[in-house]
């Protein structure tokens, strides 16, 4: 029986065997077996990823090998110039931002950054920004506006960091400020949720003219664990909470919260960084082309209109 959390196990096993055979020199008679295993992997991956539950999607969105912001920058951008610090307190490594050339255009790029490996994960605070991170982002938004550069944001955070220092330095104010300043920005903003869209900490980079989500990313008002702890008083009901919250890309697309779902390579973005990044790049390029002629007033009005329409209620 497939364990709910361990749904990737058969794939991992196949990948390991393929890797092993690939290590042998060419012409050593393993080609037929390799072809068979690759075929089997492809089939199995389609099967497993074709029926992920919302909780399993959450686990894919949090996968340690998933491409992070700096991976997207690596694959898609040239002339990357990273910018540091909020000019009032510190530099927050949980958010990276800077300037880059993307397919012939100068752009500002800002995204959450999780670390790879224990040491870097701690350095990046597991992608949970403190107020400094949001204020650095704001600095870059304003810089982009000044130099008329479009802004690309990449969202991947469990949430804004809930710590004493973060509260003292105004976590709430930093997020709130970004929401109103993003609404007011005179240049195009294109948002892509690449992994975890964790509540206000995600939305603080999320007010855009376009909002996209990768196929197995999630975007939610609260983590499934947090929701289960509050509503069921039991963290172990997280799978139920994940279903109830409707946090998958297809759910958000259905609710009209996002503009498009970006399909991931077979087996998820973590199985093929290059393909995942290129797919994100293609949709970003298309969106940039669509928005390049818009005036500042049109961009602001579009954002206002887009977010004003969100919500479900009756009027009688």
């Amino acid at each position: 029986m497939a364990d709910e959390n361990n749904f990737e196990a058969p794939l991992v096993d196949l990948r390991r065997r393929i890797e092993e055979l690939e290590g042998y020199p060419e012409g050593s008679g393993h080609e037929a077996e390799l072809d068979r295993l690759r075929g089997a992997l492809d089939k199995k991956a389609r099967e497993v990823f074709g029926k992920l539950t919302p909780w399993q999607t959450t686990l894919v969105a949090r996968h340690f090998d998933r491409p992070y912001t700096l991976d997207y920058i690596d694959h898609l951008m040239e002339d990357w110039v990273e910018i540091h610090g909020d000019r009032s307190y510190a530099d927050d490594p949980a958010i990276v931002g800077g300037l880059a050339t993307f397919r012939g255009r100068s752009v500002a790029v800002i995204g959450h950054q999780k670390g790879r490996g224990t040491k870097e994960r701690i350095f990046r605070n597991f992608g949970q920004p403190r107020p400094e991170g949001y204020r650095k982002a704001l600095r870059i938004f304003k810089m982009a506006e000044k130099f008329n550069l479009p802004v690309l944001t990449l969202i991947d955070t469990p949430g804004a960091y809930p710590g004493i220092g973060a509260e003292e330095r105004g976590q709430a104010e930093a997020i709130a400020r970004n929401l109103i300043e993003m609404a007011a920005l005179r240049v195009p903003i294109i948002v892509t949720v690449t992994g975890e869209g964790g509540s206000g900490g995600a939305l603080a980079l999320g007010v855009g003219n376009r909002v996209f989500m990768l196929e197995y990313s999630i975007y939610s008002v609260i983590s499934p664990e947090g929701c289960a702890a509050i509503l069921w008083k039991d963290q172990d009901r997280k799978a139920e909470a994940a279903s109830a919250l409707r946090l998958t890309a297809s759910d958000l697309n259905r609710l009209g919260v996002i503009d498009a779902v970006i399909p991931e390579p077979i087996g998820g973005a973590h199985a093929d960084h290059h393909a995942a990044c290129q797919r994100v790049g293609d949709i970003l390029e298309q969106a940039l082309n669509e928005l390049s002629e818009a005036t500042a007033e049109e961009l602001i009005a579009e954002r206002h209109h887009k977010f004003s329409a969100l919500g479900a209620f009756e009027e009688r």
Binding site: L179, I180, A183, L203, L245, R246, L247, L255
Partner: peptide
């Protein structure tokens, strides 16, 4: 804070209100 029972739509109210406050500010 946000109402969990309306999921992502609750979160989006933060952006909606902020956009409206921007008009007031302008």
């Amino acid at each position: 804070g946000a109402r969990m029972q309306e999921g992502i739509l609750s979160l989006m109210q933060m952006a909606k209100i902020s956009a409206a406050l921007n008009r007031l500010r302008q």
